[in-house]
Design a protein around this nucleic acid. Structure first.
Lengths: 235, 235
DNA sequence: ACAAAAGTGTTCTAAGTACACCCATGC
DNA sequence: GCATGGGTGTACTTAGAACACTTTTGT
């Protein structure tokens, strides 16, 4: 089995950073670590790479096992590889991030699994270097969302333009002009207006929209520039 | 040492994809693999992650050991992790890419080290999944270069606008209007015009420019859009 | 004198931004 | 009838794209 002589083998872990949106604020899914060290502290959902799987497979397996989720937007981020990052044993961790519509899975996740949603603004301190991994993931999410329509992953099938605007404002921690926002969004021709309205947050009600799934899949990589200078977000 | 019981340890490798530009065409640095299997075949510059180093450290160490290069633009790309990608033993490889001014290091590299430059268009087939890793790296390079002034890493200290345009045209395999190109480039205020000219490729001669190093470092993340729709490049 | 590459300016179009009022409804 | 959030249009500014002629100089 060990055919390259004189080399060190080590553990490869996958840690999943899962963002959820409930219509108002951005949240993060965390679990209480079930084994030593740091047992009982909050942690990202993680696991070790198995002999017969790729990293993508491992990320999907771990996400499913710990949350029941399948088929979500899952992106490989940078690796965490400082030699002492796991005090127990040398482990290189590969970060993945996922985006989900929180309402869709809220009960399922919190009842069947020992995971909890935290407001990003009220996130507890995490084990090892997980805090930094989350920071990086947020930065990457913001960056990606400037150029790609990924944020729709965080909304229900039917949503209103004000809700969508809330989401963008939550992610960028800023305010947009609704006229310009609506015009930009609709100019993508990615949304289909519905006949019915959501009256839960106003008397007048706001029209529901649905994603045009075909166009969404096809145009995923040609979106628009929501944020004038996306670059400051990466540093 | 093995304190997480029941888990598989494996090798973590770093492979470096090194791009060079000689003023005309984009090249790739390869070495002949020195050990079995696939000994004697062309390969990326790689090595295994050592116990006491991070991945970034390993990439820099390997690059220096195999080429003598230090302090170049080195970016972590995605991992290659298919279970059978290395037929000898399970290995996860982390790809890094670097950009260098080929003329600056040409002799050093090819004499002291057993590495060779290949025109990208005439690259031989590589071992394992290295061909795919190179493809991904090119795609990422093109994408990054649409928004960041990274391509200056590929040019000498003094260069002319036509040479810079050649570089962009080589990377995107396309043609630009020189009026628009010059205007765009100069509008960044990142270049400082020199008094002397390069007469090697015309009678009239083209003015040299130098990078304003301070502005380059500061403005690295606010560049311009050279390529109308950068997104098709990622897939 | 001419070939070969360098350099330069204007017009048009598209996208972003700023900005203010009317609409529909539940209370 | 009024308070609340939803919806819409216009003028301005900026950036990109298309496009052709003049300049320099070695031969």
């Amino acid at each position: 089995m060990h055919k390259y002589p004189g080399q060190t083998r080590l553990l490869v872990a996958v840690d999943c950073i899962i963002f959820g949106f409930d219509g108002d604020a951005l949240k993060l899914l965390l679990i209480k670590r079930g084994f030593e060290p740091e047992k009982g502290k909050w942690s990202l959902m993680g696991g070790f790479l198995q002999p017969d799987e790729s990293l993508d497979n491992a990320a999907n397996r771990i996400l499913k096992k710990l949350t029941g989720l399948e088929g979500v937007f899952l992106e490989q981020l940078k690796n965490a590889s400082a030699p002492q990052r796991d005090p127990v044993e040398r482990t290189v961790s590969v970060a993945y991030s996922a985006l989900i519509d929180l309402n869709k899975y809220k009960e399922q996740i919190s009842s069947e699994y020992h995971a909890e949603w935290f407001l990003l603004s009220k996130k507890p301190g995490l084990i090892f270097d997980h805090d930094k991994m989350v920071e990086d993931a947020i930065r990457k999410l913001r960056y990606n969302a400037t150029m790609h329509p990924i944020l729709f992953e965080l909304l229900p099938d039917k949503f209103t333009l004000p809700k969508l605007q809330n989401l963008y404002e939550a992610i960028y921690d800023t305010q947009f002009d609704k006229r310009n926002f609506n015009r930009k969004i609709l100019s993508t021709a990615l949304l289909v207006k519905q006949k019915d309205k959501d009256k839960s947050s106003s008397k007048k009600g706001a029209y529901y929209y649905k994603l045009d799934k075909k166009k969404y899949a096809a145009n995923f990589r040609s979106f628009l520039h929501f944020i004038p200078n996306p670059d400051h977000l990466l540093r």
